[in-house]
């Protein structure tokens, strides 16, 4: 059975809305809201980035062409969580000392910045008009930025988590991302062989 566009959209929005409502179900998050928002938005951003990377393989595997919509929606969700993460950091975390000092005392912050800057052009060009304007091929090349964006996010989280909760989850993200990258590389080489 091939799902229609409407059902695919419904499915995507259910996931996104659930991800948004979930933290409100637990009052613990309210004790230190800034820390909670930072942690949760960061986690959500990286998870939606992984989800975005998974769409193409899933579409092929389950033969659900309409599900390609999900790639853009999940990608943009990831960006908006990253934006929230970034803004909360700017307004509440660095107060009496600057970003530069923060890079020095906490180098993992720099990785976060790189990840966020990689995501900006992707979010900006995620609409049909702009795809037409810059051309599908350029757009595709530009959107390879998702891999460095993912790598920077994962390392950002890895260096943040390594001492406290342990790097287990960050490593799981990294391996999953690497696996998806291999999948993509394999698929490309396979296709180019056919092209020959």
């Amino acid at each position: 059975m091939v799902l229609n566009k409407k059902k695919c959209l419904f499915f995507c929005w259910t996931i996104i809305i659930f991800s948004f409502v979930y933290p409100f179900l637990n009052s613990f998050y309210l004790i230190n809201p800034v820390e909670s928002i930072l942690h949760y938005s960061g986690q959500s951003s990286i998870r939606f980035l992984l989800l975005t990377l998974m769409i193409t393989p899933l579409v092929k595997f389950f033969k659900q062409p309409f599900f390609m919509f999900a790639r853009r929606i999940f990608g943009l969700t990831s960006f908006f969580y990253a934006l929230l993460h970034f803004l909360v950091y700017l307004f509440f975390e660095i107060e009496s000392f600057g970003v530069y000092e923060d890079f020095q005392t906490r180098p993992f912050i720099a990785y976060g910045f790189f990840a966020f800057f990689c995501l900006i052009p992707l979010a900006v060009t995620s609409n049909n008009n702009l795809i037409k304007k810059i051309g599908v091929k350029n757009w595709k090349n530009l959107h390879q930025l998702i891999y460095p964006a993912f790598a920077f996010s994962a390392f950002h989280y890895y260096f943040k988590s390594v001492s406290k909760e342990g790097p287990g989850l960050a490593l799981a993200y990294l391996f999953l991302g690497l696996f998806l990258l291999f999948f993509r590389a394999f698929k490309l080489s396979f296709r180019s062989r056919i092209d020959d």
């Binding site: 230190n32 107060e95 009496s96 005392t105 906490r106």
Partner: peptide, 21 residues
């Protein structure tokens, strides 16, 4: 004296939004 993963110049008092010295 900073800790490698966080500055010790400021702190967030639980219940407050902005950090204090």
């Amino acid at each position: 004296v900073d800790h490698p993963r966080w500055s010790q110049k400021t702190e967030r008092r639980i219940g407050e939004w902005l950090r204090r010295k």
